[in-house]
Structures are given as structure tokens and as C-alpha cells.
Write a protein that binds this DNA or RNA. Structure first.
Lengths: 225, 225
DNA sequence: TTTTCCAATCTTGTATGGTAGATGCCATGC
DNA sequence: GCATGGCATCTACCATACAAGATTGGAAAA
């Protein structure tokens, strides 16, 4: 399974269990539809049912678990409609971000984003898809930070976990080169203060995920509702 | 205080406590900064500490409570920056919704929205601000439904509670007539399929909340960080 | 063979006791 | 009078026991 709860770093047992379970779910070590129980996880991690139960509540609120009272708790299957609408939310916010950023004509934006793209190219050349993913996430969060809405990005992070599960299933089908070139177009539009072009580039960049979703559903129908 | 947990309707005790506390917090019966404890609430509602504890966890994840381990649990003060960014998220999504709706040139949209506005005028004439608030919320949610992203609206509902607390503080300073006329402009732009005009009208409509926030902070400084 | 029903055994929900950490008051020493 | 240390008393956290609904299996009856 994933990381052990003996890996310290969190404050309470409950939070450690939350972290361990979330990793297992996002990385598909726990698959959608898998049935777990408080006693099961408690025994596996050497704690009592109490902190496990609280972890379940947290994860259920984040949409990763489904608690069926008096019945069982299952890893929630991925809702295609939920993914679609999570993408809608993300696109709405990111488009707004990119327009404001292009409007402000950020001076340091071009430099910072350029450095990130360079790192992504290095990761892509090294076929380090894990690191590429991290850098891609950092790229988008940096856009939020430059616009002064980093907290807003954190707010949608929960819903992004649904997208991450899909993303994990598609690892290796790396179109990282394509993503990098798309990033370059976005940054170019921002430094040129061309809001319309930046918006169009961002929409095209995000739209590519749509076909990935269809392919993933076809490849793993059991993981979806 | 607010509603009693003896008001049935929820499945478990914990969920009943969640509902009761959330109502008390949003309606300012429990004020930002108020200190509560598991034993306190448990005794007040006649349940054990366990379901109260689980209710605290849920409300903490929704940003209404702040659990300080081994210290205390307090009603979270309203973060002006959080409110600002919650509004950013809402504006991003609502603008995207209104643009798509105008683009589709919804046939039934005009009729449905027109009926809602008529009801709002009735509520406004009767000085029923409570009902007006409900109808206003329904107006915006209907926009989401007509665009096919009602689920997305539900996703941002949690963060909207922060805005609702501010809104509750401003009840009575009713500019409902202004809101109604703004709604009319939005609907007119939608039926005319004028996306740009619809977007501008929506931004203007939401921008009005900004000044309300400043006034509210000045009137109740203790409730904000 | 098919259907029905009951009981063993799962599950989550709730109650309670004990533990460790944080706080604040108060006495003690200066 | 003032600073300091210890103790009473809070808090949330965790473990354990019990309760009650849901499921499943098999036995018994049709």
C-alpha cells in the first residue's frame, strides 16, 4: 500500500491517516469501488477506529469516499459529469486569471514563467513525467499567485483531486511536448498584453483534457459511474 | 439560540448538530470569535461529545470553525481576503455561465428568468427581505442550471457561506430595487444573445457587493480578521 | 428446485473514560 | 511590588465498549 502512518509530520493520527489514504486514492492504490471499513484501516495502520472514522469524514467531504451509513464505506467512483464540471470551474477561473494577468501586463511574469517552462523542458527530456506533472501544477498555480488570487487556487484544490485521479490513469501517454508549446503560447500572449489571445490559448490548452477523459473512460470503465 | 437538534429530518445526530450549528453561525447567533467546546455543545444539545466532535470537523472543513488542538474551538472570524477571493471565484464562474447562456440564445431562459424577476418584485414590494434573498439565490442558481452546470454551482456553495455571513450583516440595507433592475438588464442581454453586454451587466451586478463589504467591515470590525 | 425466513456477522453510529498538552490562577520566593 | 514556578483545570485527542441497522448465508418449508 502507500505510505505508513508512522511517517511523522502531521499533527494528529487522524490527519496522518487522511494523508495516507488520500495518497493511496489519488495514486489508484485504492481503486474506485474498493470497499474499506473503519476496522480494516484501523488495524492496517495500528490505530483505533476513532481517528480513522474522522479521516473518513474528511475524505468524504472532499468527494473521495462515500460513506453509506450502517452499510459500508467505498472509494467513490469517478463521476464523468463531476469531472466535466470541475473542468468548467477550473476553466472559468483560469481564463479570468489569464485575462487579468494579460491586462496588467505583468513585468516579472514573463521571466518567472519562462524559467518554469525551461524546467519543464528539462523534465520532459529526461522523461521524468512525475516531475513534469509537479511543474505543470506549479505553472498554473504561479499564474494564480501573479494575479493575487493564490488563495482562490487553494480553494479549488479539493475539486482538482478528482481530475488528478483521471490524470494518474493517463500517465505515460505523455504529450508533454505539446503541453510545453501551449504554455509558451500562453506566456507570449501575456507578455504581449493580448488578453484575447491569452484566453484563447488557455481554453485550447485545457480543452485537450476533454479527449483524454473520453479515452480514459473507455480504458477503465469500472472506475467510473 | 437557533434550531434545536430535536428537530428531526437529518439521518444522524452528528448531521443534526452540523445543521443546527451552521444555521447559528450563518445567522450570527454564534458570532465570529465565540469560543465553543465539545462538552459545551454536547450538553446544550443533549448528545455525547462524539457526534459534536464530528460536527466540528465538518464545519472546520467548511471554513466556519477553527479547531485549535488541545486549546479550543472558535467560530472563525471572517477573512476579508477570503471573501474577496470567494467573490473572484463566483464572478469567474458566473461570467462564464452568462456568456455561454447568451451564446446559446436560450429560448426558455427568458421566460423562466422573467417569472423569477416578477416574484422578486412582489417580495420587494412586500418588504420581505428574507424571501427576496431566497429568490435572488434561486435566480443565480437557475442561470447555472440553464447552462447545464448546476452541479458546479453546488460545488461552490460551501465557499458561498462566507459571503452569506457578510450578507446577513447587511440585511435591511435593502437595495433590492437596484438588484431587480440589474437582473432585468442581464436577462435582456441574454435573450438578445449579446454575450459582451451580458458579461458587463453581470460584472456590474456583482461589483456592487464590494462596497457592501467595506461598509460591513467598518460597522463590525470585531467580526473580521 | 425455489422461496422464505432467521440468525450470525458484518457495517457505521454513539457513549464514556482516560491521556496529554495548553492555559491561567495563585502562592511562593525575591 | 514583581517575577516565577507549580498546580488545578480547562481543551481536544484517542481508545474502548456498546448499540442498532444492513447484509449474507444457510436452513427449513413449500
Amino acid at each position: 500500500m502507500g505510505a505508513s502512518v508512522s511517517d511523522i509530520g502531521e499533527e494528529t493520527m487522524a490527519l496522518r491517516v487522511v494523508g495516507a489514504l488520500r495518497d493511496d486514492i489519488v495514486t489508484m492504490a485504492l481503486k474506485p469501488g474498493d470497499v474499506i471499513s473503519e476496522s480494516d484501516i484501523a488495524g492496517r495502520y495500528g490505530v483505533s477506529r476513532q481517528p480513522v472514522r474522522e479521516a473518513f469524514i474528511r475524505l468524504a467531504q472532499q468527494g473521495l469516499l462515500l460513506i453509506r451509513p450502517k452499510r459500508a464505506t467505498v472509494v467513490k467512483k469517478i463521476s464523468p459529469e463531476g469531472v466535466r464540471q470541475s473542468r468548467f470551474i477550473r476553466e472559468s477561473i483560469e481564463v479570468e486569471i489569464i485575462r487579468r494577468l494579460a491586462g496588467n501586463g505583468g513585468g516579472e511574469a514573463g521571466r518567472v514563467l519562462g524559467e518554469l517552462i525551461a524546467e519543464q523542458e528539462a523534465a520532459s527530456s529526461a522523461n521524468d513525467s512525475r516531475r513534469f506533472h509537479t511543474l505543470d501544477e506549479l505553472f498554473h498555480r504561479t499564474l494564480a499567485r501573479l494575479t493575487g488570487v493564490e488563495y482562490a487556487w487553494q480553494l479549488i484544490d479539493d475539486h482538482k483531486m478528482q481530475l488528478d485521479r483521471v490524470r494518474y490513469l493517463t500517465l505515460g501517454s505523455s504529450s508533454s511536448q505539446l503541453a510545453i508549446s501551449e504554455h509558451k503560447v500562453i506566456v507570449a500572449a501575456v507578455v504581449a498584453a493580448d488578453a484575447a489571445a491569452a484566453e484563447a490559448a488557455m481554453r485550447a490548452h485545457l480543452a485537450r483534457a476533454e479527449v483524454l477523459l473520453s479515452q480514459t473512460i473507455a480504458a477503465h470503465p469500472d472506475y467510473f459511474e
